[in-house]
């Protein structure tokens, strides 16, 4: 299962003098859900729009199914479904018309599956699009995408206007796609969503991919938060290079440890008479904050 569906190599995109994408390199493999995360304005949507052939790259390479995203756009799009972050629909068409149109444009038809999704997402398809709220427009796009038989699904912050119930349905549907062996590229800010569904994630900041890998890999690269109660003073630990943000009140000490040096610190801790120890692996939020702010994650210790 290591066949690459999306391959992006040193992709660059300039808008005039502004370099929106500096160096984007990532791979989405067949059958995996890839989480694409990063702060606002980091280049997520620009990357996705370049993948869709809406924007023309300034440098690097991008292929989907081994075909160039610019020259072979039509061939690629036959096997792809996409939901943008902000869905805008022609105000004078009804939701039902738009869904059917989107299916037909890919040579597909309104199917029982479409009806099932309409019921699931509780959408009144007879309303004109101008009367839809943001969440309802999002549903139109989601229903059209999920009922399209495709090999690759691209979602750009798809749940930003959905209520929690609908978000749950969205997650179920994505997991169902995953079970069916489809590939998914999911850009999102909802970390629980990414944590629950994604096999691997890529973090983008300022137009550069700064980290890709599985969540487990990334945790490895991050720090574990330790709260410990000892009989003797743990003050000496503060001097260890792998220990960050050390704080001590009486016998309680809290600090963050570089995950790879955990063993070493535990060895130093053992002779101090450990009465209680709590270790918290980094959450995605911690990873996020760490990568988003380029600064040192000294704040970790303040938890």
């Amino acid at each position: 299962m290591t066949e690459a569906v999306v391959t992006i190599n040193h992709l660059q995109k300039k808008f005039g003098k502004f370099q929106a994408l500096k160096d984007v390199t990532l791979t989405v493999n067949a059958g995996e859900v890839f989480g694409f995360i990063g702060p606002n304005g980091a280049g997520k949507s620009t990357t996705i729009r370049t993948l869709l052939g809406i924007l023309k790259k300034s440098g690097g390479e991008a292929t989907i199914f081994g075909q160039d995203v610019w020259t072979d756009a039509v061939a690629i799009h036959k096997r792809l479904a996409y939901v943008p972050g902000d869905v805008y629909l022609w105000p004078n068409l009804s939701g039902g018309e738009v869904i059917d149109l989107f299916l037909k444009l890919n040579g597909q038809k309104h199917s029982p599956r479409t009806d099932e999704l309409i019921t699931k997402f509780k959408l009144d398809v007879t309303k004109k699009c101008r009367t839809y709220s943001k969440g309802n427009r999002q549903k139109v796009a989601l229903i059209a995408a999920f009922s399209t038989a495709a090999d690759l699904y691209i979602f750009d912050e798809p749940t930003s206007g959905l209520d929690p119930l609908m978000e749950e349905i969205f997650q179920q549907e994505v997991l169902a796609l995953k079970d069916a062996g489809k590939s998914v590229l999911l850009s999102s800010h909802i970390l629980s969503e990414v944590e629950r569904m994604c096999d691997r994630i890529g973090i983008i900041r300022d137009g550069q991919i700064i980290e890709t890998g599985s969540l487990a890999d990334m945790r490895q690269l991050s720090r574990t938060q330790i709260t410990v109660t000892t009989t003797q003073s743990a003050g000496a630990l503060a001097a260890l290079p792998a220990v960050h943000g050390f704080k001590q009140t009486d016998q309680h000490a809290t600090f963050a440890v570089d995950s790879e040096a955990l063993g070493e610190v535990m060895t130093a801790l053992a002779p101090l008479g450990v009465k209680a120890l709590q270790s918290t692996p980094p959450t995605l939020e911690d990873l996020f904050l760490r990568y988003y702010n380029q600064k040192e994650v000294g704040s970790n210790a303040q938890h």
Binding site: V74, Y88, N106, G107
Partner: peptide, 18 residues
């Protein structure tokens, strides 16, 4: 105009050439 209003965004992701 419809591009700048975002109406076409999903259309471009379909198998429709420019």
């Amino acid at each position: 105009r419809d591009d700048s209003k975002g109406y076409f965004e999903q259309l471009h992701a379909k198998a429709i050439s420019r």
